[in-house]
Design a protein around this nucleic acid. Structure first.
Lengths: 134, 134
DNA sequence: GTACGTGCAAAGGTTTTGCATTACA
DNA sequence: TGTAATGCAAAACCTTTGCACGTAC
């Protein structure tokens, strides 16, 4: 939670609970996932509040909005450059540390101004490999 | 259109129009984009038919469903392994030929069974660079 | 002729918006 | 105290589904 202490947003109990859930979370939760967790402590919690808080965090660069899951947006509190492994069966998203910067062709760099880039690798996670017939 | 000739699906006039639009198309259109184009020739065209046809093509491996755009799915008739440049301003998606296979860390390959992987590079396209203050 | 595609309408799921109430700073 | 967050409901989107009718093969 240290990292969220001075991010310049009003810290309500609901927001603290959201930040508590997100800090160090590597599960890449959806808004609904966040809502489910925070609802335990705040039964009157609203999904709209979750979305609103996530929007603020995204704007402040404290979370990334992932567009990997075709069904819903997912959020990642790990904002340093890294890559993702996605299980085609259970949709689990696993972090893959960035080994080195991705090299892009020279003519690409000259045309586009690249801000960030990452790798998405799709496959089957250890748990699903055992049970699923691909 | 050659490539779609023998893909084993009933070829209705509507579907031929969709295939005509997709073949060689590098704009990564959404279902709505496809619908807009095909509607010109078939005013009674239904969005549901577009979605249904895209689902069949996806199943047959003739198009890829891209989850890059947070607002809607987009489709790519180029199914060979390649990467994407995404303009953060106009959301244009540009193909980037795959130079070599992406190397992943050894321990990742041992755990996950990787099926495919690609790079997503975000930045500003030449047109937007000129007009937008980043 | 039959299985399958089409088109319309309705429903489903996620995300956004409006607004009155509440609470942080 | 004033500005901003919360919570509820409704709306906005994209996408899917059900069903009667029509058509490719």
């Amino acid at each position: 939670m240290q990292r969220f202490r001075y991010i310049g947003m009003k810290l309500t109990p609901q927001r603290l609970a959201i930040l508590d859930f997100l800090d160090g979370n590597t599960s890449h939760p959806s808004a609904e996932d966040v809502f489910q967790f925070v609802s335990k402590r705040f039964p009157t919690m609203s999904l709209a509040t979750v979305y609103s808080t996530l929007a603020v965090l995204k704007k402040k660069g404290e979370v990334l909005e992932l567009t990997i899951d075709p069904d819903k947006k997912r959020y990642d509190p790990e904002t340093s450059e890294h890559h993702h492994l996605i299980c085609l069966s259970c949709k689990r998203i696993v972090d893959m540390p960035s080994e080195r910067r991705i090299e892009l062709p020279e003519r690409v760099i000259q045309n586009f101004t690249i801000v960030k880039s990452h790798i998405e690798a799709y496959g089957y996670c250890p748990a699903c490999k055992k049970t699923i017939t691909v």
